[in-house]
């Protein structure tokens, strides 16, 4: 299953990059996509069912607009802090355990935290929990954690 999906993804990627459809090009596209899919299908989509993949992708896309809005707000905050002559920062390290189950969830949460409100993830893992470096005191991450948990789904 993951083999076929990887193959299709690689083929799409090839077509996007080349944009030509000669006979030799198409044949070599198929051959190389098969090769790459054979060598690395367990790396990209290891052991994920198709239906849960679709559900997660749809939920992830639904999550994106909120994320972009937050990124915009966060950037204006950082710009304000950077250009303020007094440099009003008071950094602290927050530790918490969001209790996420999958690697995908952890990756999405860690990257979202890095991109949004004055915070950068400095440690993320299933066992070690999250450590977050925040520019100002009192950063609130609960809303983001709930949203990422919703993407992950109830398993």
């Amino acid at each position: 299953m993951s083999f076929i999906l990887t193959f299709i993804l690689m083929l799409i990627f090839w077509v996007l990059l080349s944009g030509h459809f000669g006979l030799i090009l198409v044949v070599s596209a198929v051959i190389f996509s098969l090769l790459v899919a054979y060598l690395s299908h367990d790396l990209l989509l290891g052991g994920v069912g198709l239906s849960s993949l679709i559900i997660k992708s749809v939920r992830f896309i639904a999550y994106l607009p909120w994320l972009f809005w937050e990124i915009l707000l966060a950037n204006f905050e950082v710009i304000y802090i950077t250009l303020h002559p007094g440099m009003k920062i008071d950094p602290e390290v927050i530790e918490f355990d969001p209790a996420l189950k999958t690697d995908v969830g952890i990756t999405i949460l860690a990257n979202s935290i890095t991109l949004t409100p004055g915070t950068v993830t400095i440690e993320a893992g299933k066992k070690s929990g999250f450590k977050v470096h925040s520019l100002t005191k009192g950063a609130d991450l609960t809303e983001m954690v709930t949203k990422v948990k919703w993407i992950e789904g109830e398993e």
């Binding site: 990124i71 950082v78 991109l115 950068v120 520019l135």
Partner: peptide
């Protein structure tokens, strides 16, 4: 750790 904030966020946007 504070320098990484502008480099990671603002730069990306």
């Amino acid at each position: 750790f504070t320098r990484i904030h502008p480099a990671g966020k603002t730069d990306t946007l």
